[in-house]
Design a protein around this nucleic acid. Structure first.
Lengths: 312, 312
DNA sequence: ACCTATCCATGAGCTTTGCTCATAGGTTCG
DNA sequence: CGAACCTATGAGCAAAGCTCATGGATAGGT
C-alpha cells in the first residue's frame, strides 16, 4: 500500500518543487512518479496534491504523508548504513564473558583503548552464566570468553593473551614480607582471604595448598578486590592475587607480593571465541588488542609462550 | 532496498516464530518470504537470521531491523488509516495520552462536548507509554498529552488548561473533618490511600509529607477512584485528590475535603502537543475546549495564570 | 532407531508490477 | 502568441516478485 517509494516521491517533490525535478533526483522519469502517486491516490481514495496549473500543492493528506516521510525515511537510510557497517564488521556489540575475578581489572585496561579505536562497537561484559562460560559461547550468549581455563573444543578457539604470576599478598609488617618465597606449611597459621568461589577454582588451593595437603587457619571470602586488599593491608589476613595487580595497589596500600613456592605459580589468561566469528574484524581486533596490552603492562618475571593455540 | 515488506516479514517471523507461520499471516507463500529476505541479505551483505536446524535466530542485523520494524510499521499502518479517514471526510483520530490518574475524570468532562462539536473526529485515550508521555508525543504515539508536569522542549508546546486544589479527603465522622486545614504531623496516625504509582509522583508525598519528613501510619494503594473514595467514606483511611473531584462525589458519599497545609496545594493540568500539529484545527480546538471547560467547573479558590506557555 | 510432520532453501516458470517512451494538454512567461 | 515549462496518460516492454514443485534437514513421537 503505502510504500517507501511513495514517501520518497512526496518528500522529493516537496524538496525540489516539481515532479520533473524530483524524478531527476530519484533517477526515474517524471512519468513513473506520476503513475505511482496516482495509483496511491486511487487506493487511498484521497488526493495527495492539488493540481494547480503546472504546480502541485499538498492536500491535508499530502501534508500528513510528508510529515511521515520526513520521520521515517531517515530511519530507513540510517538502517541501511548500519546494515552495511554490520556487514563490514565495523559495528556490533561485543559481549564479553568473564570467569575469573581478577580478570576484570585486566579487562578494564583492554576495553578502554579498544572502545577508542572502534567507536561503533559497543562492549558488554557478563559475569554469570547458566551453563558456564563455554556454554555461553556456544549458546551465543557471549562472543568472547576471558578465562584462565581454556577448553579446546571443536568450534571454539582459545588464545593466551596474558601471562602473570599468582602471588601471596601480605602487608609490610607481616613476618613473611621479607621471604623470597613462601611454602604451603607457612600458611597453616594464616587467615586466607579469597573471592567467594569453589576452592577447586582457586589457584592457591588447587595448585599450592591442596597438593601439600594443607589448609590455612581460617578462610574468609570477600567479593571485591579493593576491600580484600584493604583487609590485607590492615593485617586481617593474606590473599593470593596476580602480581601485576598487587604492584598496582602497592602505591596506595601497604602491600608486599611474595612468591608462592620456590618456582612460583605461573598463570595465563585466555580469550576464547567461536571459530565461526573468526572473520569478524572487531572480534579479531579485540584479541589483538588484548595481546598487545600485555607488553605495556608490568612484565611478568619470565616470558613464557606467547601464543600457542595447540597448547595443553 | 530496505522495503516495507522486509520489515513486515521480519516482524511477522519474530511474532509467529517461523517463516511458514509468518507467510500464512501475510497471505504469501513461505517461498516468497524466503526469497525476499535472501535478496535483502545479499544486497545488505549481512545475514538477518542464523539458520539453525529448522529455526531462525536473529543476528545482530536482524535484531536491529526488527527494532526498526516495530517503530516504523505502526506508523505506516496508522498513516493508511488516516488517509482512509481523510478520504471518507472524517477529520481523523485524536489520540490523547494521560499521565495522571484523576486527570481521567476531568478528561471525560472535556471529551463529551468536544465529540459533540466535532462529530468527524474520534478520540482515543491511552494511559501506558513505553518511554513516558513526552516520548509518546515525539514518537507520534499520541497527539496530545494531559499531564500535571509539563516539559518545555523544542518541538512541543504545553499550555495550562485547568487549575485545581489538591485536598485531603476524610469522612464526616473523622476528627479532621472540621479543620480549616491539616498539617503533615496530623497524618502520622492515618492510613493514606493513593493510586499505585511512585511516591515521587504523588503530590501528597512530594509537596506535603516528604518536605516535612513525615510518613503516614500506613500506605495503601487502590487503582480506581470510586473504590478509593468508598474506602474513605467508610472510614478505612484518608486520600488526597482534587477538590472538584471530591465535591462531585460528596453528593453520593460521605466525604469532606480539607485543605493540605495552611496555604493549600495548588496544581495545574497542562495539555501538550507537537508544534508541528499547531495548525490542525481539531487539535487546537481540543485545547480551547479544555480551557473553557474550566470556567464551567466549580471554580478553584484563587484564579491563577490562565495561559502562559513560557511559565515554569 | 526409525518414521513422520514440519521446517527452510532453491530453481523454474508465470503473473504482475512498474518503468520508459511517446505524446497530448495546460500554464507561465517574455 | 509562441517557447519553455509543467503534468497526465496510454501502450509496450523488461524486470521484479510470486507460486509451485521439490529436496534436504531436523525435531519429536513411537
Amino acid at each position: 500500500m503505502l510504500e517507501r517509494i511513495h514517501l520518497a516521491i512526496i518528500q522529493a517533490v516537496d524538496k525540489h518543487g516539481s515532479l520533473t525535478a524530483a524524478a531527476k533526483h530519484l533517477h526515474l522519469t517524471q512519468s513513473a512518479l506520476s503513475h505511482a502517486i496516482r495509483k496511491l491516490e486511487e487506493q487511498a481514495g484521497t488526493q495527495i496534491w492539488f493540481r494547480e496549473g503546472r504546480s502541485l500543492r499538498p492536500t491535508q493528506s499530502g501534508h500528513y504523508v510528508l510529515g511521515l516521510a520526513k520521520r521515517v525515511l531517515p530511519q530507513l537510510t540510517l538502517a541501511e548504513e548500519r546494515l552495511g557497517q554490520f556487514a563490514r564488521g565495523e559495528r556490533g556489540t561485543l559481549r564479553i564473558g568473564m570467569e575469573c575475578h581478577p580478570c576484570y581489572q585486566w579487562l578494564l585496561k583492554v576495553v578502554d583503548p579498544y572502545l577508542a579505536r572502534w567507536p561503533d562497537v559497543d562492549v558488554d561484559v557478563k559475569q554469570r552464566f547458566q551453563f558456564g562460560g563455554i556454554g555461553a559461547l556456544f549458546a551465543h550468549e557471549i562472543d568472547l570468553l576471558v578465562t584462565p581455563d581454556p577448553l579446546y573444543k571443536p568450534g571454539l578457539r582459545f588464545e593466551p593473551v596474558f601471562d602473570y604470576e599468582q602471588v601471596l599478598v601480605v602487608n609490610r609488617r607481616h613476618r613473611l614480607s621479607d621471604a623470597t618465597y613462601v611454602t604451603p606449611e607457612e600458611l597453616t597459621n594464616e587467615i586466607l582471604i579469597t573471592y567467594p568461589v569453589d576452592v577447586e577454582r582457586l589457584d592457591v588451593y588447587a595448585l599450592f595448598l591442596m597438593p601439600a595437603g594443607i589448609a590455612p587457619r581460617r578462610h574468609k571470602t570477600i567479593e571485591t578486590t579493593d576491600i580484600m586488599l584493604q583487609m590485607v593491608s590492615s593485617g586481617r589476613g593474606v590473599a593470593a592475587l596476580p602480581r601485576w595487580l598487587v604492584e598496582e595497589y602497592a602505591a596506595k596500600l601497604d602491600l608486599v607480593p611474595v612468591r608462592l613456592g620456590r618456582r612460583g605459580i605461573a598463570k595465563q589468561i585466555f580469550v576464547g571465541a567461536r571459530e565461526a566469528d573468526a572473520g569478524i574484524d572487531y572480534v579479531k581486533a579485540f584479541v589483538v588488542q588484548a595481546r598487545e596490552a600485555q607488553t605495556r603492562e608490568p612484565a611478568p618475571k619470565k616470558t613464557r609462550r606467547r601464543s600457542d593455540p595447540t597448547a595443553r
